[in-house]
């Protein structure tokens, strides 16, 4: 089996597994909606205030939802031993990691994109900013999954890794948050956002090329 075939096979297997537990996939989305709903309740229902904080709030909620959903990325494979099989297989572990992260992003990152315009309406985000919100989420959420996978791989062997994961991963998410939320803010004010999008694209290509290697190294440590 070539590396590419292994990539495809693993992607198919993971998507099938996610499909069989599809009820669980709703949880991060519900979390995303509920967290965003809390902000008007906690701050103020006024349009003037909400439209200012909307990009940041939506992005912080997306960040937390992406991170919390990552917890089960390697968990079941670790527990039933298939992760060890992957590590022992002749295929490049970084590539297999990439397949797993990609499958995970398809079922958790992508749906956030579909929900985001609705949440934009909740928070009175100006119409002009919606495309920018979607574009930043499209470029940014894969980065969150890729960087988060490193943290998950480091904590997968621990019984209570959840809190630790947030401590490890959230500081690394800061650049994505800064560029993405700023892009949406700037777009809401009616200015071009090509610069921010280029930077997000750079972050994406950097994490796409480097993060799978770090994740693979971390997995090998967790498995040892």
């Amino acid at each position: 089996m070539s590396n590419w075939a292994a990539f495809q096979a693993l992607l198919k297997r993971d998507l099938l597994l996610y499909y069989r537990h599809r009820a669980e996939l709703l949880n991060p989305l519900l979390f995303f909606i509920i967290v965003v709903t809390l902000f008007p309740l906690g701050i103020s229902p006024e349009v003037r205030i909400l439209e200012i904080i909307a990009p940041g709030v939506i992005w912080v909620a997306a960040l937390l939802a992406a991170m919390l959903s990552l917890d089960n990325l390697f968990r079941s494979d670790f527990e039933d031993g298939s992760l060890e099989q992957m590590a022992l297989s002749p295929h490049a572990l970084p590539l297999l990691v990439l397949a797993k992260v990609f499958a995970h992003w398809l079922v958790t990152g992508l749906p956030l994109l579909l929900l985001a315009p609705l949440l934009g309406v909740f928070l009175f985000l100006p119409q002009e900013a919606t495309p920018a919100l979607l574009l930043t989420l499209l470029l940014g959420t894969p980065v969150l999954s890729l960087i988060g996978a490193i943290g998950v791989a480091l904590t997968v062997g621990l019984r209570r890794g959840g809190m630790l994961l947030s401590l490890l991963v959230l500081p690394l998410y800061i650049p994505v948050l800064i560029f993405a939320a700023n892009a949406v803010n700037v777009a809401a004010a009616g200015f071009p956002i090509t610069g921010q999008l280029y930077l997000l694209g750079a972050l994406l290509s950097l994490s796409l090329t480097l993060a799978p290697f770090a994740t693979a190294a971390a997995l090998r440590i967790s498995l040892s």
Binding site: I150, G151, L154, P171, L172, P175, A214, I221
Partner: peptide, 14 residues
């Protein structure tokens, strides 16, 4: 060590 190295790559970006 893996985490520290990831951090070092990230620090300039941050």
């Amino acid at each position: 060590a893996v985490l520290a190295i990831v951090g070092v790559v990230n620090i300039p970006i941050i």
